[in-house]
């Protein structure tokens, strides 16, 4: 049971990472990041069956952080949309070395 959960969690995490690496849409990147966090949550819950309640506490904290991050991310993406009219990161070119 734990192993399966861990494998699912790892797969979800990997999906998140791959998405981050391949996509350029800010919203999708943002979703991938959230996916990574939640994949980790799954791991924590699974490990909690072995090690007790600490993992659950951690999960609640991660959820909080993820929520704050989501709120913030939404705001930032909206700001980007207002400035650039797009959320595609490859179109953001004001900062070039």
């Amino acid at each position: 049971m734990i192993t399966e959960a861990l494998i699912v969690s790892a797969i979800l995490f990997a999906i998140g990472v791959v998405g981050v690496l391949t996509r350029r849409n800010a919203i999708i990147l943002f979703m991938c990041a959230e996916l990574m966090l939640n994949a980790v949550n799954l791991s924590f819950v699974a490990f909690s069956r072995l090690h007790g309640v600490t993992g659950h506490v951690f999960v609640i904290m991660v959820m909080t952080v993820a929520a704050a991050e989501a709120a913030l991310g939404l705001a930032i993406v909206i700001a980007i949309y207002r400035h650039f009219g797009t959320v595609d990161l490859s179109n953001l070119r004001t900062l070039r070395g």
């Binding site: 981050v20 943002f30 991938c32 990041a33 980790v40 700001a79 990161l89 004001t94 900062l95």
Partner: peptide
């Protein structure tokens, strides 16, 4: 706009690194 771009880049990379 530059500030917004910086924020979104920082945010996304930061979120990923947090992951």
């Amino acid at each position: 706009a530059r500030s917004a771009e910086a924020a979104v880049k920082y945010f996304l990379l930061g979120a990923i690194s947090s992951g």
